[in-house]
């Protein structure tokens, strides 16, 4: 006996059948606009020669720059970069906690005025470019790594506050309820239930943000905010490619080490 398999109706609406054409058209227009709008005239004839000398410099780094005891060598400046990232991240983690509680939506909250305004403020902080912050702080405290620390501290609040706030929104409220039902005051609930529950996630996000801060601390020096970026931009401007090579190598090794260290620590936390 033959059974017929009923297939779902093949009749589609016009939109279902031809809707993809509209998307193709939109995407096509966007790319047409993009490629027509950009001017690729910036090519220099020296491009290939410069690339060759960069490659040569990367293969023959100035090893003598690694350590010469002057305090202006690679190791000292890498340590300074790490110090900027570390201090900035710790300070911003502390500032982020109140912001996070501001931006986190409570479990029984129906109006989102408080948390909504907090989220908007955090978005504004996040979008403010970090190097502009660095330049502003350089005006206040002069060029150097202090300005870098301040820039990292303020800029990181945007992301850490958001991550912390989401952690608070998604946290397990069981231990809070337990303390409340045993008659605990709200300060006790906070100290004995909220903080211990949320701490591992806060620490994990702080470590993650530290990884990002190491990258940004290594470029903040390009505008004069301390760390390895300053000699890097000088080396690029003076076409000292061997020095660029050794600094690049230093940054790559530093970032790889910090990333794997932080990843190990984060695995043990959660």
């Amino acid at each position: 006996m033959q059974t017929t398999i009923t297939t779902p109706s093949q009749r589609h609406s016009l939109w279902q059948r031809w809707g993809w054409l509209l998307w193709v058209l939109i995407i096509g227009i966007i790319y047409f606009w993009t490629i027509n709008g950009l001017k690729f005239t910036g090519f220099q004839e020296s491009a290939s020669a410069v690339s060759k000398s960069i490659l040569h410099g990367l293969v023959h780094p100035t090893w003598s720059y690694v350590y010469d005891g002057s305090g202006e060598d690679l190791v000292s400046l890498i340590l300074q970069t790490l110090a900027i990232a570390f201090l900035g991240t710790i300070v911003s983690a502390l500032i982020s906690v109140p912001f996070a509680f501001w931006a986190a939506r409570g479990p029984k909250e129906h109006y989102f005025l408080r948390s909504g305004s907090g989220k908007i403020v955090l978005t504004l902080i996040r979008t403010f470019p970090e190097i502009v912050l660095a330049i502003m702080f350089i005006k206040a405290v002069g060029p150097g790594s202090y300005a870098g620390v301040l820039a990292v501290s303020v800029h990181s609040v945007g992301m850490l506050g958001k991550l912390f706030g989401e952690a608070i929104e998604n946290m397990d409220r069981g231990s809070e309820e337990a303390i409340t039902s045993a008659g605990g005051r709200s300060s006790q609930v906070f100290a004995l239930a909220t903080i211990p529950t949320i701490m591992p996630e806060f620490l994990s996000y702080t470590l993650y943000r530290f990884e990002i801060a190491v990258r940004s601390a290594s470029i903040l020096g390009m505008v004069g905010a301390g760390g390895i970026g300053t000699p890097m931009i000088f080396a690029i401007q003076t076409r000292d490619w061997s020095k660029v090579g050794i600094i690049l190598l230093g940054i790559v090794v530093m970032v790889l080490l910090i990333d794997s260290l932080s990843e190990q620590l984060r695995k043990r936390l959660i």
Partner: peptide, 9 residues
């Protein structure tokens, strides 16, 4: 440094 100032870089 390679391509010069402009959007190509």
């Amino acid at each position: 440094a390679i391509f010069g100032i402009g959007s190509t870089a």
